[in-house]
Design a protein around this nucleic acid. Structure first.
Lengths: 277, 277
DNA sequence: TGTTCGATGTCGAGC
DNA sequence: GCTCGACGTCGAACA
């Protein structure tokens, strides 16, 4: 979406120009990919050697280094982040890259006997990675299945403005008492409890009656539980996997697994698929 | 070394042309790298979603698929090998790639809202990956430190021709009896035992005296041990890490860790290093 | 093919 | 900074 600097691509580059270029690219927090024939040595927690072969080297903006062979999930050699990276032309005239980690002390050296391509790209990625459900979906499932919050629970408002913020769910329990519900997609911290408490107090201030407050999350930090008890708030543990299954069942979310083929696809030949035996 | 097909590189390609190209590339067992802005969905053993961001997609020749964000060791999403991969233009006009694994059933979808670059390369990599020491280095360490084989052991010949093959080490024990030593860098199998036995028999046939036979390896398969006992051969377990440490100590192998800087480097400025805080 | 176990595991959370 | 537990762990060795 945001217009990005064009990636810089070099085909069959002169190795002599690369150390400087790569150093600069790393300094500017770009991602560097080098494709070519290399050999690799590693020493640290273990020690390894790998002779010449065609591989993909990736240097990420945090200093992670990955050397990938043409098969398999895992890199054959790597260096996690926080490394010092050097690039130079070695005595055989090859592009050589050294990635050093200090704790534990580990050294990774990659020497390219042939460089096919170099790609330097400025990658920007701020997206959130969510497993199972995001908070909005979580709320949708609970609003659609209020019995999961508590038997007899009835939703009155989805998102209720209270004081400076918005409570996720406002409802009444089976005895007609008002209930404020706060949701967290991940382990609920003390902060989440205080947030809920703020809504409870705001409600009390407005309506002159203290509502119950329930914090719903997949897990709770000890300090969160301690604070909940102290502030006379309640909590309920939910399993995101379960909620997800429910969301799929109720049609709130489509499962990728359902279509072995792509959404909306009609009948087609097999030419579109590529199988790996 | 082997002249390789030039990698095919596309900058700012027309997405419409990509599905066909990618399908063909995968069919020809090339490695495909796509750089651009994408969103990712995964469902299988777990379920995940990742919004738009700049990433590197790598499809390897065995069908492994990796989606890398610009930081960190691990791919944010992936599919191990043995997947069916599809590529097409989705309803938003985006390049969409679906990688399906059947057991366990898992689906990964990557949709590119912007494609910056596509690299298609035929990578050839037959090199052996060795941890700690290869067999030659292992032999060098043991020949230089025969007491590791057995107290009082004395090396007579490094590589002794015997029958159709070559025994790794030939020596005599402290009582003057001939000893044939066979080395394995990895778990010794029954085959390794039979190989040793062949040398022992060849020696006996030539010199009229049965030598002792010792198989040295980091570990032994049960069938190897059974066969060793049955053929009245001996074995000694060695720790490759220990041998490696010894090799470094004795100067048989240089440790990468010793030079915080590159080998043979003179004094230089810091401009050559790129630090990641 | 299914299971168990090791890893340069990596990664995040709690202390 | 360190320990501990989970992971879509992956991957090799073994039954």
């Amino acid at each position: 979406m945001a217009p990005v600097n064009e990636p810089l691509i070099l085909e069959k580059p002169d190795p002599a120009a690369l150390p400087d270029l790569i150093r600069r690219a790393i300094g500017e927090r770009n991602t560097v990919i080098v494709i070519g024939e290399c050999s690799v040595e590693y020493e640290g927690r273990s020690t390894s050697r790998l002779g010449k072969g065609d591989r993909v080297l990736m240097i990420k903006q945090d200093g992670s280094v990955l050397v990938h062979r043409p098969t398999g999930y895992s890199p054959v050699n790597w260096q996690p982040d926080t490394s010092v990276i050097e690039a130079w032309i070695n005595e055989r005239g090859e592009l050589s890259i050294l990635a050093v980690r200090s704790k534990p002390r580990e050294v990774l050296n990659i020497s390219f006997s042939r460089v096919d391509s170099v790609i330097i790209a400025r990658l920007r990625d701020d997206a959130e990675f969510t497993m199972y459900l995001d908070e909005a979906e979580m709320k949708r499932v609970l609003v659609g299945n209020p019995e999961l919050i508590e038997p007899g629970f009835r939703v009155v408002e989805d998102e209720k403005r209270l004081g400076s913020g918005q409570a996720d769910i406002y409802g009444v329990d089976k005895e007609g008492r008002p209930v404020i519900v706060e949701l967290k997609r991940i382990t609920a911290s003390r902060d989440a409890v205080l947030q809920l408490y703020g809504y409870v107090k705001a409600y009390e201030a407005t309506y002159g009656k203290r509502p119950r407050g329930i914090l719903i999350a997949p897990s709770f930090s000890p300090s969160a539980i301690e604070t909940l008890l102290r502030l006379q708030l309640e909590y309920r543990q939910v399993d995101l996997r379960e909620l997800y299954r429910l969301a799929v069942e109720k049609g709130l979310r489509r499962s990728l697994l359902e279509y072995g083929r792509r959404p909306g696809e009609r009948e087609r030949g097999t030419g579109e698929k590529t199988r790996h035996e």
